[in-house]
Design a binder for these strands. Structure first.
Ligand SMILES: Nc1ncnc2c1ncn2[C@@H]1O[C@H](COP(=O)(O)OP(=O)(O)OP(=O)(O)O)[C@@H](O)[C@H]1O
Length: 741
DNA sequence: GTGCAGTGTATTTTT
DNA sequence: TACACTGCAC
């Protein structure tokens, strides 16, 4: 027997956490709010399972939401138990699924070296199928089918399980799905959804495989359980049904992937799904200050579909949530930049500051601002591997590793230009489809086909010959050297060099960067298997950089200071979300806001702009309804510019947006507004809107503000004034926006 | 088969 | 705005 007192890592836990960690058998659910130490429970529990010798590292399967999270968890576990942590099966559902699938690939008709394709390739494949069916894409866009197929996969539905009442049979959805799967199989490819459905099918239809895995895995641990989908749920149910040793942690209020098939009901019905489950609720938040936590609780309380919880903290801190109203997105970026510079002067670490946005498109302007003021930053989740030149290069890797990969073949055959144009490619595709052979083999036997002219055949032969030569070199050459050679010999580098532009140079640099990441792998196959699942860029943040990312990507992370720009109706909550899913969509948006706020330890800075450019048009925007849902007494309002049109208390008809006064392109109204041109001048020419007025303000002064009218200075601190307005209440305003009266 | 001009449409979030 | 797609001239 062991003694609990021996395990000093348990001292870092509170009593409830200890219960969760020490319950080593049976189903355990830790359901609790943000920052209550759920992830810490999971990490410590893994260590405890090993320290108590309850099981072996290779018998543990731990599922995280991102690969990065898996890496971090592995690091933390090994800091407790040492290098044995390496042997734990740890990763995302997708990466673990891929692992299982590679082991048993032949059972589902794949080869071990199958390629994982991305959404772009999925779409290309569907487009090909639709055009074979003469389906008019204007009427039924490929995207529609993509969404349907993906959502079926999220539910773990293979084509044979699609019953007719699930489909709109006139659109042939089921048949398209079937053909899509056949094409994938022929290319020896899988998509992301397959990494869940195929392993599930594997376990469902092969009892010996199921047996083997059930005996292998003694304990399953899952983080962020609220964002699992049906396919994932079914998979882990099968895996753990023998031992029932499953421990899930999550928070129903942080479920933000419903649009991707995540089912909150998985976490809500855990104790029904797993008999004798122990449910543990943690209530102490260790991350945020009282004010932040209360504001977040108050907001999430507006959701109806939730369990509800008590959260408290001992962390004091007197910073209110700061809500800034700005004129437009450019001023917003400037403002964030200034605030961060202030933090630098206060000796805050840049690595403890993050800007969380709703949409990726918001990032650009902020990035540009950071660049122009020389502020170091990093973007999490931008996909290096999504760039055109990287995809081209990877397509070469793909065809060298898996010659069946039709999509890679198609991408590469005329890149760079070889004089094999769309007509020829169409002929090759037709042959491939009619004779049911891979494009590459069509190419290999090109001389036997009649309807292609000789010069073209020569070009194709030459291309195939090149590929085959490189394939033999795979065994002798370093992977990165080989790809460097491929890019040189194909003339791919040259194609960009000839362009001789700034853009082309960056592309060549990116390719060099790619070679560096390839060189970290022993084989091209190894690289390829990782690259399709890799999303987070590895940049370590030791130098100290501000982090810029989407709210979705921020899940599970924490920072001292958080900026949340773009809290405007339409953007956040996103109008698309409301249109598509109504109240359900709204509640998910609100959870997203909750996630955003609860990332902060000490400070939250929210901002909203009156005007934002959408599709190149200036649109006026109203403050997000979420602002009203934050407690008044916990927030401080800052008016950054006196040209902003609304404050967050404006009466706005959320149900019927177009009925609101002034709704529509802002230029309509602004064109009649003399301030408009003046404002444009200021925002485009002056890097900082900071013409400190010479007027000294002191407590008690009467002042006038263009929007809030008359008021009296309640507090003056340099150019920062706190003013009691006669009509508009208390506001924090910079002195250059008010006049002394 | 290639290149370019003109048109239309889209931005929600990701493994 | 910005990029993907189409149609046309060479
Ligand atoms: N018992 C504890 N005592 C002190 N600090 C703790 C304790 N448990 C966790 N923490 C700290 O609290 C913070 C939040 O922990 P953790 O990330 O595990 O929470 P979480 O519940 O997973 O949060 P979220 O749901 O927001 O992702 C971390 O900084 C962690 O180090």
């Amino acid at each position: 027997m062991y003694q609990f007192t021996d395990f000093e890592y348990l001292n870092t836990l509170n009593e409830e956490q200890k219960v969760a960690v020490k319950t080593l058998h049976g189903p355990v659910l830790v359901l609790s709010g943000a920052g209550t130490g759920k992830t810490r429970v999971l990490t410590t529990r893994i260590a405890h399972l090993l320290m108590t010798q309850t099981t072996k590292p290779w018998n543990i399967m731990a599922v995280t939401f991102t690969n990065k999270a898996a890496r971090e968890m592995k690091e933390r576990v090994s800091s407790i138990i040492g290098s044995a942590a390496e042997q734990i099966l740890m990763g995302t559902f997708h990466s673990l699924g891929a692992k299982m699938l590679r082991q048993h690939a032949e059972l589902v008709g794949l080869k071990k070296n199958f390629t994982i394709i991305d959404v772009d390739d999925q779409l290309k494949l569907i487009k090909q199928i639709l055009s074979n069916h003469n389906i008019d894409e204007k009427r039924l866009p490929a995207k529609l089918f993509l969404n349907i197929i993906n959502s079926w996969k999220d539910k773990g539905l293979t084509p044979d399980k699609i019953s007719d009442n699930l489909t709109n049979s006139t659109n042939n959805e089921k048949q398209i799905y079937q053909e899509y799967q056949i094409k994938l199989l022929q290319s020896n490819c899988v998509d992301f959804g397959d990494l869940l459905t195929q392993p599930l099918e594997l376990l469902r239809t092969n009892t010996d495989v199921l047996d083997q895995w059930q005996s292998k895995i003694s304990h399953i641990l899952i983080d962020e359980y609220q964002d699992t989908n049906t396919a994932q749920y079914l998979w882990i149910r099968l895996l753990c049904s023998k031992t029932n040793n499953i421990c899930c942690v999550g928070d129903d209020d942080q479920s933000i992937y419903g649009w991707r098939g995540a089912e909150v009901k998985n976490i809500l019905s855990f104790s029904k799904d797993f008999e004798n489950a122990k449910t543990i609720r943690l209530e102490q938040n260790y991350r945020s200050t009282k004010k932040i936590l209360e504001a977040a609780n108050c907001l999430i309380n507006k959701n109806n579909a939730r369990l509800g919880k008590n959260l408290w903290t001992q962390n004091n801190g007197d910073e209110n949530i700061e809500i800034s109203s700005v004129y437009d997105s450019s001023e917003e970026a400037i403002n964030i930049g200034e605030k961060i510079e202030e933090k630098i002067r206060d000796n805050k670490k840049l690595s403890e500051i993050a800007v969380l946005v709703r949409t990726i498109s918001q990032m650009r302007e902020i990035e540009e601002r950071f660049i122009s003021i020389g502020l170091p930053y990093r973007v999490v989740g931008t996909k290096f591997f999504d760039r055109l030149e990287i995809k081209d290069a990877i397509a070469y890797v793909r065809i060298l590793c898996n010659s069946s990969d039709n999509l890679a073949f198609e991408r590469v055959i005329n890149t760079p230009r070889r004089g094999i144009g769309s007509t020829t490619i169409k002929k090759l595709l037709d042959i491939s489809r009619l004779e049911d052979i891979q494009l590459f083999h069509v190419g290999e036997n090109i001389s036997t086909y009649e309807n292609i002219n000789l010069p073209t055949k020569d070009k194709i032969n030459k291309f195939i010959k090149q590929i085959n030569e490189w394939k033999t070199l795979k065994f002798t050459q370093e992977p990165s050297e080989l790809i460097d050679m491929v890019l040189e010999e194909t003339g791919y580098y040259e194609m960009w060099r000839n362009e001789n532009s700034e853009d082309a140079n960056t592309r060549i640099e990116n390719l060099k960067e790619l070679l560096i990441s390839i060189s970290k792998f022993d084989t091209l196959e190894g690289f390829l298997q990782h690259v399709s699942l890799m999303t987070d860029n590895e940049t370590n943040n030791i130098t100290g950089e501000v982090t810029l990312m989407t709210l979705h990507a921020s899940k599970g992370l924490e920072f001292e200071i958080i900026f949340l720009p773009g809290w405007e109706e339409g953007l956040f909550p996103s109008s698309r979300s409301l249109e598509d899913s109504g109240d359900v969509g709204l509640e998910e948006e609100r959870r997203l806001a909750y996630v955003g706020i609860t990332r902060a330890k000490y400070e939250v800075h929210i901002s909203y702009a009156s005007s934002r450019r959408i599709h190149g048009l200036w649109m006026s925007s109203f403050p997000s309804r979420f602002l009203k849902e934050l407690p008044e007494e916990l927030s401080s309002k800052v008016v950054v510019s006196d040209y902003n049109l609304y404050d967050e208390n404006i009466n706005y008809d959320y149900q019927n947006q177009t009925s609101n006064p002034g709704y529509g392109p802002a230029w309509k109204r602004f064109s009649n507004n003399t301030n408009y041109k003046q404002k444009l001048f200021i925002s485009s020419n002056s890097p900082k809107i900071k013409e400190i007025s010479n007027d000294e303000f002191k407590k008690g002064d009467r002042v006038f503000h263009i929007k809030f009218g008359m008021g009296r200075v309640a507090n003056a601190n340099g150019d920062k004034l706190e003013i009691h307005f006669d009509k508009a209440g208390n506001k924090k305003i910079k002195s250059n926006f008010v006049e002394k009266k």
